[in-house]
């Protein structure tokens, strides 16, 4: 099956010429098929924001690729995953989230995810692999948190299915997804099977890109003053195809508008009012300055 494209690749197509006769929908579609290359390179990429593109090593999220978001004990993985969904969904691609019953959907909307293009399968249960495989056939991006007992063979099959169906598979391996995880997460100790670098991942297969949040801080909040603001974090990406194979990118979520510069999240004199002494704040440089 040829993958249907959601992003209209040729919005400037001369409509008038085609529509002169009594061309019906089928005829238009056949003309459309004949007059364009088999697969456009830009069709293969789902748009993402520039800092994320830097992480991925490609200008966008490549269809058919598998991106694993590892847990590292530092929170931020869920927001990062949602930020990755923002670009594709707002450009009209369908996204599905599997096995993430506690996903904060307001946060998703704030991070730019178009909720009318998002479908949730919160409790796939033991049919996880079957559900993800089915969704890869129809959706453009599937974000899934695999169960702890996912066999390597199943993971390989899902990655192959994503490749074959030209859908991007995001594996939210580091996200605390369910209630018991959250309760255990409160003392700040990730479960033994996940999280800490060096422990086996929930995704036993290789992936094009592995992302993990290695550092982060919370700006804007002090002891009894302020409130949580944008979250600066440092993300390390291990890429299989791009060079260099490992990059570290500092970004702030929600992603500020391009070109804006975040200088500090601590108000003047904030240290006396109980703000943390030296929150890690990185400036977001305009894209042209990079």
């Amino acid at each position: 099956m040829h993958p249907a494209r959601l992003v209209d690749p040729e919005p400037e197509r001369p409509v008038g010429q085609v529509g002169k006769g009594r061309a019906g929908g089928a005829e238009l579609a056949s003309i459309d098929r004949r007059t364009r290359p088999l697969v456009l390179a830009r069709d293969e990429l789902l748009p993402v924001a520039p800092p994320l593109a830097e992480l991925l090593g490609t200008p966008g999220l490549r269809r058919g690729s598998t991106v694993v978001l590892e847990g590292s004990g530092v929170p931020g993985g869920t927001s990062l995953a949602l930020a990755l969904l923002a670009g594709p969904s707002s450009s009209g691609a369908w996204c599905a989230a599997v096995g993430l019953p506690s996903l904060g959907l307001v946060a998703a909307a704030e991070l730019g995810v178009a909720l009318d293009r998002l479908v949730l399968v919160p409790h796939p249960g033991r049919r996880f692999a079957a559900v993800v495989a089915a969704l890869l056939e129809g959706c453009d991006v599937v974000i899934a948190r695999p169960p702890a007992a996912l066999a390597p063979g199943e993971a390989r099959r899902l990655a192959a299915r994503a490749r074959e169906r030209r859908a991007a598979l995001l594996v939210a391996a580091g996200t605390v997804a369910t209630l018991p995880d959250l309760v255990r997460g409160v003392p700040g100790r990730p479960k033994s099977g996940e999280g800490r670098p060096g422990t086996p991942s929930l995704w036993p297969e290789s992936a094009e890109v592995r992302l993990s949040v290695v550092a982060g801080s919370w700006g804007g909040i002090g002891r009894g003053v302020g409130r949580l603001g944008p979250r600066p974090m440092e993300v390390v990406a291990t890429r299989r195809r791009a060079t260099p194979p490992e990059v570290s990118v500092r970004l702030v979520l929600p992603l500020p508008a391009e070109g804006s510069v975040l200088e500090t999240l601590v108000p003047p004199g904030g240290a006396e009012r109980g703000y943390p002494e030296s929150p890690v704040i990185w400036p977001v440089l305009p894209a042209s300055a990079r």
């Binding site: 479908v119 949730l120 399968v121 049919r127 969704l135």
Partner: peptide, 19 residues
């Protein structure tokens, strides 16, 4: 595709969020 997923999990198995 979602109808198929609903076939596996039930009609409530696949949902869409609305603000």
């Amino acid at each position: 595709v979602l109808a198929r997923v609903q076939g596996m999990l039930g009609y409530d198995g696949a949902v869409r969020p609305v603000l």
